[in-house]
Simulated assay, not measured.
Amino acid sequence: MENNKINFFTRIGQSISNYDFYRIIVKESFGKAFGYLILFSLMISVLSCIKPVYDTNKAIGLVINHFESDIPYFELKNGELQVEGDMPIVFENENSIMVIDTRENPDESVIYGYQQGFLVTKTKMVSKEGFEKTEYTFKDFGAIDFNKKDVQKFLPSLKVFLIPIIIIGIILWTIIGKLFSSLFVSLLGVVVNSMLHGNLKYGDIYKIGIYSLTFPSIIKFIIRLMPYKIPYLSSMFFFIYYGLVILYIVKAIHSIKREGQFVGPNYN
């Protein structure tokens, strides 16, 4: 197997199933290993975008339907809000409440018995989080006039703004996370290499560490897709994840030692 002809997906499979493949890795350049890390991170991040994008698209659709059917007609003009219907309008659950009350002198204390509260009056908004209270008047936002129809026209465009932000955020977060993980794994590799008397250079350990992230990362991705949660798995998975990483590093070093490749030359 010539190292310069191994394609990306073959590298994924070989890094998972063939410990002897790590003999080839230590002969390759650092740039090739780093390129694999970026491509693998991109693949995982793009696949990870599917569910959040689907859920966001579905949630926005539900918000639009709820807004059209359940929210009464309203209009904000000259710093004053007018809402059709009987007041107050209340949305509440166990720990939070939202109240719309455009009558004169509404009772602000209605939100005080909740951990989270939000009150909309004729001239202002009052939010409460624990003991902290924040208040904004509509005039603070300047000469902004709109009504329910204007908001209805705007809501579908939320997909245009939110979905790209979600995709870019997941991709960047995944790549940055994998870069930091590779650095942490390289430190683990230094310890393992010392314990096994592998005599590998740090650059070779780093390259091994990059590929050792493959299988644990795929398992992590699959677990996140599961429709149900396994009790205590999230708290235990850190140890499972890096336990697998260490296993691959140990097996890779043993394989390299058997071939006498204590220091791998670099080839492009």
Results as ranks from 00 to 15, higher is better:
Asn193Gln: 09
Asn193Thr: 09
Ser194Met: 13
Ser194Tyr: 13
Ser194Leu: 13
Ser194Asp: 11
Met195Asn: 09
Met195Thr: 12
Met195Gly: 08
Met195Val: 15
Met195Ile: 15
Leu196Ser: 03
Leu196Ile: 06
Leu196Arg: 07
His197Lys: 14
His197Ser: 13
His197Val: 09
His197Pro: 00
Gly198Glu: 07
Gly198Ala: 06
Asn199Asp: 12
Leu200Cys: 09
Leu200Met: 15
Leu200Glu: 14
Leu200Asn: 14
Leu200Asp: 13
Lys201Gly: 14
Lys201Cys: 05
Tyr202Arg: 07
Tyr202Gln: 06
Tyr202Lys: 06
Gly203His: 09
Gly203Arg: 10
Gly203Asn: 13
Asp204Ala: 13
Asp204Thr: 11
Ile205Gln: 07
Ile205Arg: 08
Ile205Asn: 08
Ile205Thr: 11
Ile205Leu: 08
Ile205Lys: 07
Ile205Ser: 10
Ile205Gly: 05
Tyr206Trp: 15
Tyr206Cys: 04
Tyr206Met: 10
Tyr206Ser: 10
Tyr206Gln: 10
Lys207Pro: 01
Lys207Met: 05
Ile208Cys: 01
Ile208Ser: 02
Gly209Thr: 07
Ile210Met: 01
Ile210Cys: 01
Ile210Gly: 01
Ile210Phe: 01
Ile210Tyr: 04
Ile210Thr: 02
Ile210Ala: 00
Ile210Arg: 01
Ile210Asn: 00
Ile210Val: 11
Ile210His: 00
Ile210Pro: 00
Tyr211Ala: 06
Tyr211Pro: 03
Ser212Glu: 04
Ser212Lys: 04
Ser212Asp: 03
Ser212Ile: 06
Leu213Pro: 05
Leu213Lys: 02
Leu213Cys: 01
Thr214Tyr: 03
Thr214Glu: 04
Thr214Val: 10
Thr214Phe: 05
Phe215Trp: 10
Phe215Cys: 08
Phe215Gln: 06
Phe215Tyr: 12
Phe215Arg: 04
Phe215Glu: 04
Pro216Asp: 05
Pro216Phe: 05
Pro216Ser: 01
Ser217Val: 02
Ser217Cys: 09
Ile218Lys: 00
Ile218Glu: 07
Ile218Trp: 00
Ile219Val: 15
Ile219His: 09
Ile219Thr: 03
Lys220Ser: 15
Lys220Pro: 01
Lys220Gln: 15
Lys220Ile: 10
Lys220Ala: 15
Lys220Val: 10
Phe221Ser: 00
Phe221Leu: 07
Phe221Asn: 00
Phe221Lys: 00
Ile222Gln: 01
Ile222Val: 15
Ile222His: 00
Ile222Leu: 12
Ile222Tyr: 04
Ile222Pro: 03
Ile223Asp: 12
Ile223Trp: 12
Ile223Val: 15
Ile223His: 11
Arg224Asn: 15
Arg224Trp: 11
Arg224His: 09
Leu225Val: 01
Met226Ser: 13
Met226His: 11
Met226Thr: 13
Met226Asp: 04
Met226Asn: 09
Met226Ala: 15
Pro227Gly: 05
Pro227Met: 05
Pro227Arg: 08
Pro227Trp: 07
Pro227Glu: 06
Pro227Cys: 04
Pro227Ser: 02
Pro227Asn: 05
Tyr228Ala: 12
Tyr228Arg: 11
Lys229Trp: 06
Lys229Tyr: 12
Lys229Asn: 14
Lys229Leu: 11
Lys229Arg: 14
Lys229Ser: 15
